[in-house]
Design a protein around this nucleic acid. Structure first.
Length: 83
DNA sequence: GTTGAGCGTT
């Protein structure tokens, strides 16, 4: 089961809370995390979001991938396995 | 007030 999303091409103005609001329209967001630069704490421009089910993750991909958000067209895909 | 390809850190 892969219910994690990889989102890239994020506007720097988007934070994990903004992401959560975006994905909550397509399903239950278990967690959302924008990857931040370790040194500055600012956004690195990509993020991972975990949905309740793989089905919702797919719905979010189809719903948000390529959608202009905060001035940038989001790139949404199923995340790889980090383990 | 800065940046831009990418699959993660506490």
């Amino acid at each position: 089961m892969q219910n994690k999303l990889y989102i890239s091409n994020l506007a720097f103005s988007i934070d994990s809370d903004a992401l959560r609001k975006l994905l909550t329209n397509y399903g239950v967001v278990l967690s959302s995390q924008v990857i931040l630069q370790r040194d500055t704490g600012r956004s690195r421009g990509f993020a991972f979001v975990e949905m309740s089910t793989e089905e919702e993750a797919q719905a979010a991909v189809q719903g948000l991938n390529g959608q202009p958000t905060e001035g940038r067209a989001l790139s949404v895909a199923i995340a790889r396995d980090r383990s």
